[in-house]
Simulated scan of single mutants.
Amino acid sequence: MTHVYPLRRSSRSEFLTLRGLRHHVLRWGQPLPGQPPLVMLHGWMDVAASFQFVVDALAGEREIVALDWRGFGLSDRAGADCYWFPDYLGDLDALLDRLSPGAPVDLLGHSMGGNVAMSYAGVRPQRIRRLINLEGFGMPDVASAAAPERLNRWLDELKAPPELRPYATLAAVAERLMKNNARLTPDKAAWLAGHWARETAEGFVLNADPAHKLANPVLYRKDEVLACWRRIAAPVLWVEGSEDQLARFWGRRFPREDFEARLAEVPQVQRSVLADAGHMLHHDQPEALAAQIDAFLAG
């Protein structure tokens, strides 16, 4: 029998129209005078509810807002057959216009969300008080010569769009989550499954637009990303798990020394490695991560 995850802080589910799309947000706590909201951005193929465990472990009371990116969770799909990275920056800018138009916020992003947060903090440095990046390494630089083959692959995939296979039960979704992350406990997996997937006539399907799996026709340009990183004015807390994700995901395509050189370009960085944690460190070690977040935001 799977134990029920003991929820400590209840969230409020709300919808905001941002740039013409209905976006889903989760909100914990209430605005406090003089205290900026903490805005949380999830990673690729994830959802805002993924932050529940670390929110439960944070000390004190403060306003926390987590966004479902377009095409993920309960937010609208883009309405096109592709997703472009600049749209995430535009959606985040519109969200902050709604949440805190006249004052900076504290911003936290995981993986893809961490990459968005870093770029945004360089483009709009005045809007971020403190920035937390959880394993948002970026991607390997891509040479211009790769453009024809990448575009060719993208055009081919447009003719046969990817699909997301259904699962027979929510328990099967939870099993998939634990297969992806061996550190995820059954109670957390069962709780996440209900947010990660929805029931359809074919079974339980992930809350994500399959178009996210298309090859990206826009090449990753390290120099352009670093031009943004160099402009970050906020103090940055960089947190990664002890399990080396760069080697796991990219091998020699993205060597560790390349990332170290990139992070050295950021003006103010405090670094931390969480023991016994992988890429989903907010699931693996939420209490340890929350303690670091509390200390950094209070510093």
Rank of each mutant, 00 (worst) to 15 (best):
M118N: 03
P101H: 12
R127L: 15
G20Y: 08
Q30D: 09
A247S: 12
R19H: 05
D294S: 12
G43Y: 03
G71W: 07
L263F: 01
R221I: 07
R230L: 11
P101V: 08
L184A: 12
H283Y: 10
G299F: 14
K213Y: 14
G241L: 03
L134M: 12
M1P: 15
M1I: 14
H282I: 09
A211P: 00
A146K: 13
L67C: 06
A121K: 05
R256K: 04
E163M: 13
D76E: 09
A193H: 02
A174I: 05
Y88P: 01
A215P: 15
E224Q: 04
R27Q: 02
M139Y: 13
L184C: 13
A48C: 03
P37G: 07
E135W: 04
A233P: 10
M178Q: 13
A261L: 09
D276G: 14
A147C: 14
S111W: 03
P33L: 15
G299K: 08
R252I: 10
L289Q: 09
F204H: 08
V25D: 02
G241H: 07
F137N: 04
H212M: 07
L281F: 06
W229N: 00
A247Y: 06
A227R: 04
D56I: 07
L164G: 03
E175S: 12
A172K: 00
K188W: 02
P235C: 15
G138R: 00
R22D: 07
M112W: 09
R253E: 02
L192K: 01
L170T: 01
R256F: 01
D68R: 08
G241K: 01
A146I: 11
R253Q: 11
N216K: 04
V105S: 05
M118S: 09
N115Q: 12
L214Y: 05
G102Q: 11
L263T: 03
S75N: 11
R77P: 06
H110S: 04
G79Y: 10
E149Y: 15
D93F: 02
V4W: 15
L67N: 14
E149I: 13
L226R: 05
V55Q: 02
G60C: 10
G138Y: 00
Q126W: 11
R253P: 09
S11C: 14
W28M: 14
E240A: 07
Y220Q: 12
A117G: 05
R62L: 01
G20Q: 10
D87A: 04
F51K: 00
V47G: 03
V39I: 13
R198T: 02
L74N: 11
R176T: 01
A174D: 09
A233K: 10
V225F: 02
S10H: 06
K159G: 15
D56R: 03
A288P: 01
I128W: 00
M112L: 13
L41M: 03
F15H: 12
A143K: 12
A298E: 11
I293F: 01
G113A: 06
A190V: 11
S100F: 13
E224D: 07
L32F: 13
T200Y: 04
